[in-house]
Design a protein around this nucleic acid. Structure first.
Lengths: 126, 126
DNA sequence: CGGTATCCGGTACGATACTG
DNA sequence: CAGTATCGTACCGGATACCG
């Protein structure tokens, strides 16, 4: 036995690969984490997530909606107010996301350190 | 309290963000998963991971090396043989990666289903 | 077998300006 | 406050060819 089952996310056609690639971009994990604590407003996420633009936030949220992980709720008020929250399916991702972010918090320094110790030589300037 | 600590991966300058973005590309998670069972050869990973090209595999492995997560071992033999394995730091990622891939295997179908149910309308053809 | 270099298209991402 | 449209750039990622 090779140690890999048939449902593993290695086969290109597998839905599991789709699910893995769903989080494979710069912002999805961070936005998901932002949603994991409960309903949040668009503006709150902008404030919370350093460096994200409104465009990328909306785009990421739309993608999460399309994949059934998040839901949008617009209140008919003035000023306008929109809240996002995880769906039931999205809530099942909370644990994986938290495990991942906890790893990142715990080991981010070590990664940065390794990156600093292994600076791949820049091409010679001449 | 807002529910977010200061070490959370939201602040743009935080090393945790670097660590999160390290896995935020199409192949890193899958390759990491491939490494999680023990030393593997370049060719084995190619066979194992459906759809990956040699270029992207090497590139991903180099990045993992640079970030201190994987190590390369070339045997001075004929025919040439190269094995990759996780470092001690990389091994700490096994659990997060497995939690994530298990989620993907368990919920990949549901994601695909939601994607099928919410097909965002294509622009009118006329 | 393992790795790199080159070419090329698609798109992720950001800045800006505009709508409601 | 929330969202969209447009534009431009950088880089991701695949195909191919060549080297050790």
């Amino acid at each position: 036995m090779s140690g890999f089952g048939s449902g593993d996310p290695f086969l290109a056609d597998c839905p599991a690969r789709l699910a893995v690639e769903l989080i494979a971009d710069k912002w999805t994990v961070v936005v998901l984490y932002g949603l994991s604590k409960g309903p949040v407003r668009h503006g709150e996420l902008i404030e919370l997530i350093g460096g994200i633009s409104r465009k990328m936030l909306t785009q990421t949220l739309r993608r999460l909606e399309a994949h059934g992980l998040a839901r949008r709720h617009a209140y008919a008020e003035a000023p306008p107010r929109v809240e996002y929250e995880l769906t039931q399916l999205g809530a099942t991702l909370i644990d994986p996301i938290h495990v991942l972010t906890e790893w990142a918090v715990a080991n981010g320094d070590a990664v940065l350190d390794a990156l600093d110790a292994d600076p791949e030589p820049v091409a010679h300037s001449g």
